[in-house]
Amino acid sequence: MKFLCDVHISFKVVSFFKGLGHECIHVNEILEGCFTKDAEISRFADQGGYILVSKDSDFKNSFLLDRTPKKLVKINLGNVSNKNLIEILGHREELLRELDLKESFMLEIGGDRESYMD
């Protein structure tokens, strides 16, 4: 799988995905880094086949209205520790593998709820 972590996702998450053998980059490493506009991030993710991991609700809105980014993991956990976020993502690796086969999806991960749509 290929992941693109948005600006508010730690580089520790990038390292975690890489450690599992996945391709993963951070938005700060591409385009204009943290100054990159959301539309450009979505376009980059869609063109490269990346799953965008973000806490930004603008990406959820963009997915619902325009289906971009095509593949989105929306984190709704507030100021969760990196350790806990990595653990939560690790428990969903198999689900992410299944969803990645789809043309388009959004997986929302919240405190006591989780949902996805395609």
Rank of each mutant, 00 (worst) to 15 (best):
C5F: 05
F59K: 01
I109E: 10
L85M: 11
G21Y: 07
G111I: 10
E87P: 00
V73Y: 00
L72S: 05
L96Q: 11
F105S: 02
D112P: 00
V13D: 04
R67N: 08
S81P: 04
K2Q: 10
F105D: 05
E29N: 10
C5M: 09
V27P: 13
D56Q: 02
T36A: 06
Y116E: 09
G78T: 07
L64H: 07
D118E: 15
S104P: 03
G90D: 07
V13I: 12
V80E: 07
K74M: 13
A45Y: 10
C24Q: 07
R113G: 03
E32C: 00
K55Q: 10
D56E: 06
F3N: 05
K83D: 14
K12N: 14
V27M: 09
H91Y: 06
D58W: 05
F44Y: 15
E108M: 04
N82H: 14
R92L: 07
H8S: 13
G111V: 09
D46K: 13
I30N: 06
K55G: 03
E108L: 13
L96V: 03
R113N: 12
M117T: 13
H22Q: 00
N79I: 01
F63C: 03
V27F: 10
I75H: 08
I9D: 10
M106R: 13
I25T: 07
H91D: 15
G48P: 06
E29W: 03
M117F: 08
G90L: 07
R97G: 05
V53E: 06
L20C: 02
D58E: 10
A39S: 11
L20F: 00
M106Y: 13
L89G: 10
K74T: 00
I41N: 06
G48D: 03
R113Q: 06
F44I: 01
D56I: 01
N82A: 10
G110P: 03
L20G: 00
G49C: 02
S57K: 11
L107M: 05
